[in-house]
Design a protein around this nucleic acid. Sequence first.
DNA 1: ATAGGTGCAAAGTCTTTGCGCTTAA
DNA 2: TTAAGCGCAAAGACTTTGCACCTAT
Lengths: 129, 129
Amino acid sequence: MKFSKQRELILDTIMKSDIHPTADYIYNSLKKDNPNLSLGTVYRNLAQLVENGFIHKVSMPNQSDRFDKNIKPHAHIICDVCNEVYDIDSSSIKCFINNLSSEHDVDISSYNIVFKGICKSCKKADLKI
Amino acid sequence: MKFSKQRELILDTIMKSDIHPTADYIYNSLKKDNPNLSLGTVYRNLAQLVENGFIHKVSMPNQSDRFDKNIKPHAHIICDVCNEVYDIDSSSIKCFINNLSSEHDVDISSYNIVFKGICKSCKKADLKI
DNA sequence: ATAGGTGCAAAGTCTTTGCGCTTAA
DNA sequence: TTAAGCGCAAAGACTTTGCACCTAT
């Protein structure tokens, strides 16, 4: 993989972000200071960064894919209230997968787990009302 | 919800199928005997059937949505070898979600869980080679 | 009678790709 | 020098929608 300014900017955007950005978000963030950047380039680089293990792609039901700097296997929750996506990291995931593998006699190599619900801060906010 | 022949056919197709069909699959299955059926009608009815709780929609990473007659919450696995989608039903899912809810202080209302891996029959087939 | 459903085709959203030019190595 | 990457715009895959007509109730 040859170095490119664009790829570096894209990776940087993801690394600095906590919101699991979409391709479009990345494109628009960078477009301001890099007016020649093209959306195709963003998609091409994201695919390559995923393929090379620098980032993870998270498929969101009925929404654009998001990209995650956290490459350790983990799940996500999207909040019904604030619409933010949060990491759900848990030792119980591993255990869960082990159970499934033996119960169902399958080999699991990867997963895409997205919960819908209400996040910690929106739960708190709701209590205050 | 008013009765319609088309909706009945669509629901029937899903109920009789074990493959978690896509909109396009349903459309093409029915098109043979119902040449006037339109893909828009299939999508509209699927949305309505989901909304009314007759079926479930399953979002597959990088693929068309699939529709599931099994409306009990459960997970799925897509096989890397045969590409089939199977239900993963497990008492450990409920337990897993309970753990997460308390660990992460979130309320989980629904989920879309898709594993990738090798299914039971492909594992068996592989052993024979 | 009329609210809801249909077929058709156009449009929308998200993503990929072909091509000729540019650039890192 | 040259393989890899870029910008641009067109195309692709999947899904939704506007509209005029039809149909269950």
